[in-house]
Deep mutational scan, measured.
Amino acid sequence: MTEYKLVVVGAGGVGKSALTIQLIQNHFVDEYDPTIEDSYRKQVVIDGETCLLDILDTAGQEEYSAMRDQYMRTGEGFLCVFAINNTKSFEDIHHYREQIKRVKDSEDVPMVLVGNKCDLPSRTVDTKQAQDLARSYGIPFIETSAKTRQGVDDAFYTLVREIRKHKEKMSKDGKKKKKKSKTKCVIM
Rank of each mutant, 00 (worst) to 15 (best):
M72V: 04
C118S: 10
E76A: 12
K117H: 15
M111V: 06
T74K: 15
R68N: 05
V112D: 00
M67L: 13
R73F: 06
C80Y: 08
S65M: 08
R123F: 09
K117S: 14
N86F: 01
L120R: 07
I84E: 15
V112L: 06
E98F: 00
G77D: 00
E98G: 03
R73Y: 09
M111D: 00
Y71A: 14
D105C: 12
R123S: 14
K117Q: 13
V125G: 13
L79F: 04
M111T: 03
D119E: 12
V125K: 11
D126R: 06
L79K: 00
A66S: 13
G75E: 04
G75H: 06
G75Y: 10
S65F: 07
T124I: 09
P110K: 01
R73P: 09
D119A: 04
R123G: 14
V125H: 11
S106Y: 12
Y64S: 01
Q70H: 11
I100S: 02
C80I: 13
V103L: 10
V125M: 12
Y71R: 14
I84G: 15
L120C: 11
N86L: 02
Q70K: 14
D108L: 05
D119P: 01
F90T: 09
L113E: 00
V112Y: 02
L113I: 14
G115Q: 07
M67C: 06
K101I: 07
R73H: 10
N116P: 01
F82C: 14
D108C: 08
E91A: 07
N116T: 15
K117I: 15
L79Q: 02
M67Q: 05
S122I: 08
D126I: 06
T124P: 12
C118N: 08
V103P: 02
I100L: 09
M67G: 09
G115Y: 09
R123T: 13
K101F: 06
I93V: 06
L79E: 00
R97D: 04
R97W: 15
D69R: 06
I84T: 15
T74E: 14
L113V: 06
D69W: 02
L113D: 01
D119K: 03
D119F: 01
G75D: 02
V114A: 03
V112P: 00
K104R: 14
S65D: 05
T124R: 11
G77T: 03
E76K: 05
R68Y: 02
P121K: 14
I100F: 06
T74M: 07
D105N: 08
L120A: 14
V114W: 01
K88S: 14
S122K: 08
A66Q: 11
C118W: 08
G77Q: 00
D119I: 02
D69T: 09
S106W: 12
Q70N: 15
Y64H: 04
D126F: 08
D126C: 09
Y71K: 14
D92A: 14
K104M: 12
A83H: 07
Q99F: 10
R102N: 06
G77H: 00
P121H: 10
Q70G: 11
H94R: 14
V125D: 12
V109M: 07
V112F: 04
N86V: 03
S65L: 05
H95G: 09
E98I: 01
R68F: 03
V81H: 02
M111P: 00
P121I: 09
T74Q: 14
S122Y: 09
V81R: 00
Y64L: 03
H95S: 05
V112A: 03
M72F: 05
E107M: 14
Y64A: 02
V109P: 04
V109F: 11
T124S: 12
Y64N: 04
Q70F: 05
D126W: 07
V109K: 02
M111H: 00
E63L: 02
V125F: 10
G115S: 08
E76N: 09
K101L: 08
G75W: 07
S89G: 08
R123I: 09
K101S: 08
S122T: 11
S65Y: 08
M72C: 05
F82G: 15
E107G: 10
K104V: 11
D119C: 06
K117F: 15
Y71W: 07
R102D: 05
V125S: 12
R73V: 07
R123D: 15
K117C: 15
S106N: 09
E107F: 12
K104Q: 11
S106Q: 08
Q99G: 04
V109T: 05
V81K: 00
K101R: 12
K101G: 08
V109C: 06
E63R: 03
L113Y: 07
D119N: 07
F78P: 00
D105K: 04
R68T: 04
S106T: 12
V103G: 06
M111L: 07
M72H: 05
T74L: 08
L120V: 12
N86H: 05
P121Y: 09
M72G: 07
M72T: 04
L120Y: 06
V103Q: 05
C118Y: 08
I93R: 01
A83I: 01
M72N: 04
E63Y: 01
T74A: 13
S65W: 08
Y71F: 07
E98C: 03
R68M: 03
V103R: 08
F82T: 15
R68Q: 06
Q70T: 12
F82E: 01
F78I: 06
N116L: 14
S106L: 12
K88E: 11
D69Q: 07
K88W: 12
K104F: 12
V125Y: 10
E76G: 05
E107Q: 11
N116F: 01
S122G: 14
K117G: 15
K101V: 07
N86P: 02
C80E: 02
Y71Q: 07
E76V: 15
V81D: 00
D105W: 04
E63S: 03
